[in-house]
Simulated assay, not measured.
Amino acid sequence: MQHINKWRRFNGDELQRPIVDEITDMLNSEREAGNDLKVCIGTDSQVKGRITEFATVIVFLRQGKGGFMFIHNFTTQRKMSIKERMLEEVGRSIEVAYSLCHIFTAYNVDMEVHADINTNPNFRSNDALKEAMGYIMGMGFTFRAKPYAFASTSCANKIVH
């Protein structure tokens, strides 16, 4: 990934090593602490004038013990339709999921990709639902959309607003 060292923790601390190394070490320490983890990856975006800001999150849930996340932000001035933006969000999440899935498989950690797309056809984001679902599931990942896509709709959403 080109933006391998631009990840940070929720408190703002930038990761000093590649995300792959950070996650591998974290999975080892979580395993030693006896924690069962689940990973949810999602992206949200916000248009602010001529700039669109994206936030991708890797959310780690400790079963019954809360969670934590890593965050990556990206901005572009490229003008996009709502459908293009939704599919860009999904593409960013898939890029991250694909680059990390070998680690999660090795540690037997379940992973989901969350899309900030409404399943209700009355919402404009619904235009991208079929493509997003096909893209995510076609890559072999578990797909979640609203209202079950909290990584994108709640976690990443807080970062870009």
Rank of each mutant, 00 (worst) to 15 (best):
Q2V: 13
Q2S: 15
Q2L: 14
I4F: 06
N5G: 14
K6D: 15
F10G: 05
G12Q: 11
D13R: 15
E14D: 06
L15V: 02
R17S: 09
P18L: 06
P18I: 05
E22L: 09
M26K: 14
L27P: 00
E30R: 13
E32G: 07
A33P: 04
A33Q: 12
G34D: 03
G34V: 04
L37Q: 02
L37M: 07
K38T: 08
K38S: 11
V39S: 02
I41M: 00
I41W: 00
S45N: 15
K48P: 06
K48W: 12
K48F: 13
R50F: 06
I51Y: 11
E53G: 13
V57L: 07
V59A: 08
Q63A: 09
G66N: 06
G66H: 10
F68E: 10
F68M: 11
F70Q: 01
F70C: 00
I71A: 07
N73D: 05
N73C: 05
N73K: 11
Q77N: 13
M80E: 14
M80F: 08
I82V: 15
E84G: 04
R85K: 09
M86Y: 03
M86S: 10
L87Q: 08
L87W: 07
E88V: 05
E88R: 04
G91S: 15
E95S: 12
E95Y: 14
E95C: 11
V96P: 01
V96N: 00
A97R: 01
Y98G: 02
Y98R: 08
Y98H: 06
Y98E: 08
Y98K: 04
S99C: 10
L100R: 01
L100W: 00
C101E: 05
I103L: 12
F104I: 02
T105Y: 11
A106I: 03
N108W: 02
D110N: 13
D110C: 07
M111C: 12
M111A: 13
E112N: 06
V113M: 04
H114V: 07
A115E: 15
I117D: 05
N118H: 07
N118A: 07
P121L: 12
F123Y: 10
N126G: 04
D127E: 10
A128D: 05
A128H: 10
K130H: 09
E131S: 13
M133S: 11
G134T: 11
G138K: 04
M139Q: 14
M139R: 09
M139I: 03
G140M: 03
F141P: 01
T142V: 12
R144C: 06
R144T: 03
R144V: 00
A145T: 02
A145R: 00
P147D: 11
Y148M: 11
A151N: 11
T153W: 01
S154T: 10
S154I: 12
S154D: 14
N157S: 09
K158R: 08
I159H: 07
V160H: 05
